[in-house]
Structures are given as C-alpha cells and as structure tokens.
Computed example of a mutant assay.
Amino acid sequence: MLKHLHTLPGHQNPVYALANTADGKGFYSAGNDKGVVEWSLETMSFVKVLVPVQSSVYALHRHENLLFVAQRSGLILVYDLLKQETISTLSHHKKAVFDLMVLPQKQELLSSGEDGELAVWSIRDYTLLYNFPVIRDTVRCIAVNQAGTEIALGCKDSMIRIYNSADYGLLKTLSGHGMPVTSLKYAPDGRFLLSGGRDAQLKVWDLPDYELQANVAAHMFSVYTIAYHPFAPFFATSSQDKSIKLWGADDFRLYKILSIEKGTEGHRHSVNKLIWSADGKYLISTGDDRQVMIWAFNS
C-alpha cells in the first residue's frame, strides 16, 4: 500500500514543515535550515531555495498562490508564489509559531504557538484582526472543520478547545489525552475529529457533539501528524517513535507500518510531518534525520 520510492537529501538540520505546491507537481519543506526549499515530484529532485529565513520554520501553509511561513522567532512571512517574493511579514507573536490555517470563506489566517494565543489575520491586507489568550502555555496545533464553522485547538495542557469561527467564541473543551495534544485533523467526510498526543494515543471524537468514540494506542511516543488521503479511505500518522502508520478511515484498522525497526525503509529519528500529494499518488514524510522521503501509494 505504501512503498518507499525516493529519499531526497539536502537539508542540513531537522525538518519540521511541508506544504504542496499550487500546481500539485511539487512540494515545499523547511525546518532548522536557512530557507524554504522547493522540490519536484515529477523529477523527484531539488528545484531551488524559495525564500531565506532568519530562524527555524515550524509550519508552512499554502493558500492559493500564497505561502505562509511560521518561524521560531514569532514572525510569519507571506510569500507570493506568482511574484516570487515576500510581500508581507506578520509580527505579533512574541514566541515560536507552531501552526497556521486559513479560513477561506472569511479570508482570514489563524496562527498559534508557544505564547498560548490565537491570532487572526486578514489575508486581504495582512492586518491583525483579533488576538486572544487560549491558555498560558503552548497551543500546538489547529484544525478547521470542512464547513469552516468550527476550529479545534490542541493545547499543551492536554485539552482540545473548540471555537466558533463566526465570533471565536469557545464552544466546548475536550478532555481525554493525558499529555499535550500534538496533532488534530477533521475527517474529510465530516464524521470525526481525530487527535493525537504526547501520550502516544489517537482519539476519535464523533461529530457534531464531539463525543469520544474510540481510543487507539497508535504509537510508542508522541503522535506528530495525522494526514488524510485526498480521496481514498485512509489516513496516515507519524510519530516521535520514528514510524509512519497507515490506517483505515472508517474502521481505524492498522494497514501498514513503515519503520526500520519493523524491517522496512524508514526514518532514523522522529517523523515530524506528513503530507499527501494532491493527486494522492505519494505520501511525503520528513523529520529529525534531515531526510525527505517519498512513498508511492497503491490502495
């Protein structure tokens, strides 16, 4: 179902962030290097350093022809992929920014990180619209439901907080994880919210009421990424335990483990990020071993 295809070397330090290109023919990666790198999926090779950065990049998020680059310094770069230049620098967070998400219907960018705040930016003129404290510590991850009406925030205090996107009012607080929440993803069909934590657990929350439906002992250590396939009924997870796992989206059955310890190709350190290519043919992974790996998918 997943087979190692290529390993792309080049990064000199751990890699934390991935994003697809607008045309679906490549992707971007960034981490504790000095720039955001563009790669081709057609030639399976390095293309160029897209934009230099002054500090580590913890998140990349592309919306149409804009690439948002979140840094450890707290700055967020707005890079125009058509003009091939940085067109704005968003400055508000005083500590590292860990996640970014766009609300297309509101033309707003959400950012969160180590300062415990959620910041809301206009992507029309890049002004700060709102900001408010969520907790006194890190807000690690953001997820938005398919309708764009609800926002889930994964927090260091082990709680998940659900907000209404209309006015950013708090709707619900979910407790279940025993340690910080490190990954969140709404199912494409709108049935579930999945959460992963430093407790190595994967939890399934039934929508719309966010009732805890299932708890899966998914990994040995922190679950860093949950990534749904674009159209096939699967999702992948990655972990600090150096493994990647493929799961059924309906039955939560484990279909594949990619790990050196299990005798397959794999990463030698923590797997920090996963994305699927837009056409669903490839899973892309990266982590602390500085490698970018391409996996061919066949259902």
Rank of each mutant, 00 (worst) to 15 (best):
H4M: 12
N13S: 14
A19E: 04
A19Q: 06
A19K: 07
T21N: 07
T21H: 05
G24A: 14
G24K: 13
G26F: 11
A30H: 00
N32E: 14
V37D: 01
E38T: 03
E38S: 11
S40G: 11
S40Q: 06
E42D: 13
P52V: 12
S56K: 07
S56F: 10
L60S: 02
H61M: 12
H63G: 02
E64V: 02
F68S: 06
A70N: 08
R72K: 12
R72N: 14
L75M: 06
I76L: 07
I76P: 04
L77V: 06
D80E: 04
L82H: 02
K83F: 07
Q84E: 15
I87P: 02
L90H: 00
S91P: 00
H92K: 09
H93P: 04
H93T: 01
A96I: 06
F98C: 10
L100D: 02
L109N: 09
L110I: 10
S112A: 15
E117P: 00
E117I: 03
L118N: 03
L118R: 00
A119I: 03
V120Y: 14
W121C: 08
Y126R: 04
T127R: 09
L128F: 01
I135E: 10
I135M: 07
R140W: 13
A143K: 09
N145R: 05
Q146R: 11
Q146L: 04
Q146C: 03
A147E: 15
I151R: 01
I151G: 03
C155M: 05
C155V: 04
D157A: 01
D157E: 10
S158Q: 12
S158Y: 05
I160D: 04
S165A: 15
S165K: 05
S165M: 00
L170E: 14
L174Y: 03
S175K: 11
G176I: 14
M179W: 04
L184N: 05
K185F: 05
Y186C: 08
D189K: 03
G190K: 01
R191D: 14
L193D: 11
L194H: 07
L194K: 03
G197T: 07
Q201K: 05
W205P: 08
D206N: 08
D209G: 03
D209L: 13
Q213Y: 04
A214G: 03
M220G: 15
S222R: 08
S222W: 13
V223F: 11
H229A: 10
H229T: 05
P230Y: 10
F231I: 06
F231T: 15
F231D: 11
A232H: 09
A232C: 04
F235V: 01
A236T: 01
T237L: 01
S238V: 09
S239K: 03
Q240C: 07
K245I: 06
L246I: 15
G248Q: 01
A249N: 02
L254E: 15
Y255W: 13
G263I: 07
A278V: 14
D279P: 08
Y282P: 06
Y282I: 07
S285L: 02
D289I: 03
R290I: 08
Q291A: 12
V292A: 04
I294P: 05
F297T: 00
